[in-house]
Nucleic acid binder design. Structure first.
Lengths: 329, 329
DNA sequence: AGGAATCGATGAAACGTTTCATGAATTTCA
DNA sequence: TGAAATTCATGAAACGTTTCATCGATTCCT
């Protein structure tokens, strides 16, 4: 059962170098140590191939240099992108990531928070659509795209601005009547503001609009019905479409194609997230790009700054429009 | 510097329950304990909200219930898919994942292996194209797609079979002259067999073929030149194309489009990996699908079986063809 | 009924580290 | 030059857990 005895310990190094245990510790941690001692210790470390043991340190200091990231999965490319940037940001600061896939399941989320506690992580970053998420006490906690209360910092893109931007672009591109589509109308979170921004701009711009939002659990079929309902003689009732996420936009475009409606010739589509298929220059979909890297950096630096005094409770980062193949030049 | 004192310990629980420390341990670990004691202990655990401390356990047992996964990134959707399935497979077995992004950099890989050692991970799974990767001693190590030696188990898709399958499909689809393209011709690894399989089948099927493989560091431009060289009057010299990865296939298709060559009308393209854009039913690209979930399951169960006696040194899992939009029905 | 065997709780040691009070050695200052 | 101040290595305690030898209590057998 027990693993074979692992490598040399600080005590071994101390013996080899002929110094005290505490001295080895101070050398390893880069603290002030006399030149001669430092050299002897380093020599012994080389000699023995010493690698320090994280568990011992964690036990003593109660710090693990680990952050838990709770996110639905990495199959959605936007989540995968976030995971990528967050991990890189953590690594730069010598932190490790404990990755937890919620699969949109709140029981799993709760379980992961418990597990994060057990593992004494130094903080948690969560991207959750669960409105009843229980924020644990005593652990720095940062959310993405979901504002809970002013005591739980939230990092999000400028969703409202992004929504506006989409409307402005569609207008610029010559659309005369537009529609908005999204999934998940029951919870109100930061991404909901995409709709608000879009509509506010449509009103300002005098751009007629329709909208459809799917309740949780409603099948995709509802979108199809909406599309059919708004189609006459193979023409959609609108010539511009803004969709809440790239993922959904992609699905809808597939459906439109099957209905014989051409994108972007018949209808121009703008998504949200900024997915680039394989690190492509130009996105497949025209889209509102979330600044994934900045979001990641911000989350990480906020969660690591701990429960410091004046962390802002909502950080809002700028978005940009990127033209892809689903709008006309 | 020190974190606020964390929760109650086993000693606290023992005191509360009026039992010995060791008894608490045995209850927590689900070992044989008298009914009355178990109840008292569980009550005390509830009472105090006790959460056991992973570091203490790890220190004592030298097991961390953590596996390191070394992989280039999660931006490539295939890698993201593997990360997803590996994490799920680990979680099912109550293991955590320490995720390390190599970014194709061998110094980073070496550093991560050192770090994995420090963290006393119970095993390492690596997807690396580095031919000189230093396999650490004394830690269960499993590779994906790269065979080192019979002492280092490797899990891979049936790359040879996949290559053959691509040729067979192209023939079936009516192609009369085909080509193969890939990146990274200097290293020989499991994915190299995609070419071997493809060519072997082309020969058998009497299907004329060309090929181009880019050396490490050669720019994508070389592909473009090859394409131009093989184009006359806006027609490619071949009508079927097999590309080593979906990612590269995607790029090449973009280029072909820019050259005014239509896919699949002028040339049919088959990629490799099995990327589905957003969990789509039908892949965007016609592709040879790697069984990502089985690969993940296999890696995990092999790495966790430790340095057991008879682990096979190369596990080869079946692939399948999936038709997407880049071949004719 | 009495000794052996079984069962199961106990308490202490050990894992590898950090940290802190101690004290030796050196430097500083009058 | 001598006392005070400073520097810096030392060694032990502590972190929370698992594990093992010990021992008391119960059951089993003759």
């Amino acid at each position: 059962m027990a693993k074979e005895r692992s490598g040399p310990t600080m005590a071994d190094v101390a013996r080899e170098a002929g110094v005290a245990l505490g001295t080895v510790s101070r050398v390893v941690n880069g603290e002030q140590v006399g030149e001669e001692f430092r050299e002897k210790v380093n020599a012994a470390i080389q000699q023995l191939g010493y690698q320090y043991n994280t568990s011992g340190r964690a036990l003593r200091t109660d710090r693990t240099n680990t952050i838990a990231l709770i996110i639905p999965n990495t199959i959605n490319p936007y989540f995968a992108l976030l995971v990528n940037h967050i991990n890189i940001a953590l690594e730069k600061r010598n932190y490790r990531m404990m990755l937890c896939f919620s699969e949109y399941d709140r029981d799993r989320e709760a379980e992961f928070i418990r597990m994060a506690r057990q593992n004494r992580v130094d903080g948690i970053i969560a991207l959750s659509y669960n409105p009843r998420l229980e924020i644990p006490e005593g652990i720095p906690f940062v959310t993405i795209d979901r504002f809970f209360s002013s005591s739980v910092p939230c990092v999000a893109a400028d969703n409202f601005g992004g929504g506006r931007l989409a409307a402005v672009k569609l207008k610029e591109l010559g659309c005369t009547r537009v529609a908005f589509m999204r999934i998940g109308s029951t919870i109100t979170n930061e991404p909901s503001k995409r709709r608000d921004g879009f509509i506010s701009a449509c009103v300002e711009l005098n751009l007629p609009f329709d909208q459809i939002a799917l309740e949780d659990g409603q099948p995709y079929e509802e979108f199809v019905k909406f599309l059919i309902r708004n189609t006459a003689k193979g023409k959609l009732a609108f010539d511009g479409l803004f969709v809440g996420t790239d993922s959904l936009a992609w699905q809808i475009i597939q459906t439109l194609k099957q209905m014989g409606i051409r994108v972007p010739e018949d209808v121009q589509v703008i998504g949200f997230d900024g997915i680039r298929m394989f690190g492509d220059q130009e996105p497949v979909l025209s889209t509102i790009v979330q600044p994934a890297q900045e979001i990641a950096e911000t989350c990480v630096s906020m969660v690591l700054s701990g429960h410091m005094s004046n962390v802002p409770s909502l950080v809002c980062l700028p978005v940009a429009y990127a033209a892809g193949g689903t709008t006309r030049e």
